[in-house]
Design a protein around this nucleic acid. Structure first.
Length: 425
RNA sequence: GGAGGAUUAGCGAAGCGGUCAUAACGCGGCGGUCUUGAAAACCGUUUGCCUUCACGGGCACGGGGGUUCGAAUCCCUCAUCCUCCGCCA
């Protein structure tokens, strides 16, 4: 959500930004919201005057009652009652207008960073850098589910009976590998100075509304029946929610946290769940990182964040590349975003394993996350990034570390988390 | 899950239908006097949001709703905390 004052003062900047994101259908909303805002403020002024009047007369009534002048007090009461209906009507209008304005402001996209490449959709995302050689081995790499099954590490049939399509049982060494990756990712971030955190896995609707749009919520979030609770789709939700309605002293910034959580997603509207794999599923686990910082530092933090993911994958001998989201593919709340993609030697292409985003002050404005600084109070900037999210992450791990003989080598960094094993065989 | 009590500024706490909410009082913070410097003492200052060029005005006493001319105060509801009971890793 952008600042309505900014929209008021520089509507052309907001419109240009909408054009850059190829959302021209939203252009009329800018002028509409300017008009609504103008009306809203004048009605608010009128209502405030009536309230001021009522407050003044009420005080007079109090004074009269104290002096036992009942008749005069009754006259004053009538005076207030006269304007009561008008005030009620104005208050109703105030509410309506505010609602309309908020609704529009929620869909006006955040101003994208000047460095974001312009493009219509994900086909125009831009590769930034490759890290590691995307090797195509001279032997065939099987489908990831097959690799897992070779180690008796995956049981999708039972999962379908128990929970349905989109769930999995991980077994034995594959399950252990899953936990090892999470633990390794956790320690990797702790060593980089992040504070480890295990957050709530369910959040209330007001937090949900603060961190995502209604459309996203409908497509992603599982609701708990009979409770005002939703299963989190990522720990970013509960981690950013941690700061809801807070004023953070400047001296306590930046807040750098790494969180673990299971993630639950409906994947409604997605291209269908992969029938035989763990690529797109309803439940996975994720080590995440989030940063709350001063506005002038969010660019720096953005670069630090995605590099963490690249380095983690490189330490496990997985080739990756960074891909920048073009303007049209960038979610409305985001200022800038990089995907980290891992190399798939089977598909001979890269696929998404993480996403790093700078939200600017958009999330902070929605959730009222402010900084108390020397020169006053202002909205914080928030960022988030994936460290590692298995089991999808295991696809990249298994495909890249599988040898010609079918064994899977365990890179040195991960060996302590696998009880010293150097390979799965 | 059941019973009772509570939620007021950075913290503690008074107020329990109307010049005590522009929130007493205390602590803390900030500025000053005094001092070579510090402490003590004394004086002053110290919530946020919206609106306005400004003066000013409005809103907020855990959240939401209601009663009233007027609500921190009365009613409903939700949340959180404390005490006791029950249950449970």
């Amino acid at each position: 959500m952008i600042d309505i004052r900014m929209l008021r003062e520089q509507p052309e900047v907001v419109k240009d930004n909408i054009r850059k994101k190829f959302q021209d259908h939203k252009l009329p909303l800018v002028d509409e919201v300017i008009q609504l805002d103008l009306t809203s403020r004048s009605i608010k002024q009128e209502a405030d005057d009536l309230r001021a009047n009522r407050n003044r007369i009420s005080k007079e009534i109090g004074a009269l009652m104290a002096q036992n002048k009942k008749e005069e007090a009754e006259n004053k009461k009538a005076e207030v009652a006269n304007k009561a209906t008008l005030l009620l009507e104005l208050e109703e209008k105030e509410r309506e207008l505010e609602e309309k304005i908020t609704k529009i402001m929620m869909v006006i996209p955040n101003i994208i960073d000047s460095s974001v490449p312009i493009g219509k959709d994900d086909t125009e995302n831009v590769e930034i850098t490759k890290y590691g050689e995307p090797v195509v081995p001279d032997f065939e790499v099987p489908y990831h589910a097959e690799i897992m099954e070779d180690f008796n590490g995956l049981d999708l049939d039972s999962a379908r009976k128990v929970a349905g399509n989109g769930f999995y049982y991980l077994m034995g060494d594959i399950a252990r590998l899953h936990s090892a990756v999470i633990s390794y990712a956790r320690d990797f971030m702790i060593e980089r100075g992040f504070t480890y955190c295990v957050p709530p896995f369910m959040i209330r609707s007001n937090v949900v509304a603060g961190v995502m749009s209604f459309a996203e919520m409908d497509a992603m979030m599982y609701k708990i029946e009979g409770e005002d609770l939703y299963l989190i789709g990522t720990s970013e939700h509960s981690m950013i929610g941690k700061y809801i309605d807070t004023i953070i002293p400047e001296s306590e910034l930046p807040q750098t946290l790494t969180s673990y959580s299971p993630c639950f997603r409906k994947e409604k509207g997605a291209h269908g769940l992969e029938e035989r794999g763990v690529y797109r599923i309803h439940q996975f686990e994720k080590q995440e990182m989030i940063v709350v910082c001063k506005p002038e530092e969010s660019h720096l933090w953005f670069d630090k964040l995605w590099k963490n993911t690249v380095e983690l994958f490189r330490s496990l001998d997985i080739p990756v590349r960074t891909l920048e989201c073009c303007s049209g593919d960038l979610a409305d709340l985001k200022v800038k975003s990089f995907d980290v993609e891992a190399w798939s030697p089977r598909q001979k292409k890269y696929f998404e394993v993480g996403s790093c985003s700078n939200l600017g002050d958009a999330q902070a404005r929605r959730l009222k996350i402010r900084i108390n600084g020397e020169s006053g109070k202002y909205f914080a900037h928030t960022l988030n990034n994936t460290v590692a999210a298995p089991p999808r992450m295991l696809i990249a791990f298994l495909e890249n570390n599988r040898q010609a003989d079918g064994t899977v080598r365990i890179p040195t960094a991960l060996q302590p988390y696998m009880g010293g094993k150097t390979a799965l065989s």
